[in-house]
Amino acid sequence: MLIHRFNPNDHFRTMDMLFDAIMPNGRRATNFVRKPARLTLADEEQAFILRAELPGLDPEALELSVGDDWIELTAKRETAVPEGYTALRRERGAYELQRRINLPKRIDQGAVEAQLRDGVLRVSLPKHASVQPRQITIKAA
């Protein structure tokens, strides 16, 4: 999915976006900017996979807690201009998020695994045995 901060008063940008929408992927003149701290949740057969783009996040500044059917995520990043530098352009924002995500099914809390690599958090939330699909054997009558 593409996310771009839409500004209704920026007509040139709007035109660019309209043209981009009809062009094939590789030929686009303008590029889209991704919103920071993007979250996705995938529902796989065995587990839910939560993925969050958290560039520059210190693992210390990340907190995760899980319940029977929810996960809570707290993360904070600050961006400061280092001493002796002046900013010519600043696009990278600080972010602070506290999100609670309700899961549609019960999970096995003990088997939750999280990994923060290259600024991407990936949490695997295995579904509880009681909600796993079960094969039913059919007796011949």
Binding site: R34, E53, G84, R89, E91, R92
Partner: peptide, 24 residues
């Protein structure tokens, strides 16, 4: 999808510093 990374451009007396968010 081709996207623009978000960047900061900083300048000091001795150098320019480009900082880009590239998650993943």
């Amino acid at each position: 999808t081709v996207v623009h990374p978000l960047v900061d451009v900083l300048e000091s007396d001795s150098e320019f510093l480009l900082v880009a968010d590239l998650p993943g």
